[in-house]
Simulated assay, not measured.
Amino acid sequence: MPGMKKLRSCFVVAAMAAVFAVNLPAGTAHAINIVNCGNRTDLLKFTGHDGNQTVTRVRCYANKGTMSVRLWADQISTGNNDIEYLDYNGAKVRIKRWTIMYFPNRPPHVDTITIL
């Protein structure tokens, strides 16, 4: 029964492939992106201005990763995210989740933000 042997071999190969597919960890793609803030409080919300304080920008971010901001920070609300920002002086600042930070007098010049 050569056909039966071939069928059994195909079954064994398919079963092994299924075992490997189930046991291998799924790749994690981290791509931070800008999202609509709406009324959500769980997102990273960054409020900042340009150097002349003429343009105020409010942006919300979701998902892990790093993104360029290049604004002076007026307020950072982390939502349910642990974050880190890098300022133009090279300082890395970590902020824990569910924290709101205001910078009324000496706002940091933020280069990038990272959702950890």
Rank of each mutant, 00 (worst) to 15 (best):
M16P: 00
V110L: 09
T99K: 03
R40I: 08
R70H: 03
P104R: 00
W98P: 03
R94A: 10
F20T: 14
N63Q: 09
N105V: 08
M101W: 09
R106Q: 07
P104K: 01
D74S: 08
G79S: 01
D50G: 04
I100P: 00
Y85Q: 09
K92N: 10
I34P: 01
I76M: 01
G51E: 07
S77R: 13
I34F: 07
H49M: 04
M67C: 12
F20A: 13
I113C: 13
T114S: 14
A62G: 05
G51Y: 08
A62P: 05
Y102G: 06
A15G: 01
T66I: 12
Y102W: 13
V69W: 11
I76V: 11
N52M: 06
M67I: 15
A62Y: 08
I115V: 11
V35L: 03
D87M: 05
V69H: 04
V55F: 05
T78C: 07
I32H: 04
R8P: 05
F20V: 15
T41V: 08
P2V: 14
T66H: 10
R8E: 14
T99R: 02
P107I: 02
N89K: 11
V110P: 02
D42R: 07
G27S: 11
R94M: 06
C60R: 03
V93K: 14
F103M: 06
W72D: 01
T78G: 02
I32N: 06
G79D: 02
R97L: 05
T114I: 14
L7T: 10
T41F: 04
L86T: 11
N80E: 03
N105F: 09
W72C: 00
Y61A: 01
N81Q: 04
L44F: 12
R8I: 15
P2E: 15
L43V: 06
F46L: 10
R57T: 11
V110A: 12
F103G: 01
V93P: 01
M16D: 04
F20D: 00
A15S: 09
I32D: 07
R97D: 02
T47Y: 05
C60F: 04
M16A: 15
T41G: 11
T66Q: 14
D50H: 02
T56Q: 01
T78K: 04
E84Q: 10
M67V: 15
V93S: 12
G27M: 11
N81F: 04
A21I: 07
T99P: 00
N89G: 12
Q53E: 08
S9Q: 15
F103Q: 04
V55T: 09
F11V: 07
I115A: 08
D50L: 01
V110Q: 09
R59H: 07
R70S: 12
N33V: 01
H30E: 07
R70D: 12
T54L: 05
G3N: 15
L86W: 03
P104Q: 01
V69M: 10
K96W: 10
I32M: 15
N23W: 14
E84H: 00
K5S: 12
N80V: 00
F11T: 03
G79M: 00
G48L: 02
D111H: 14
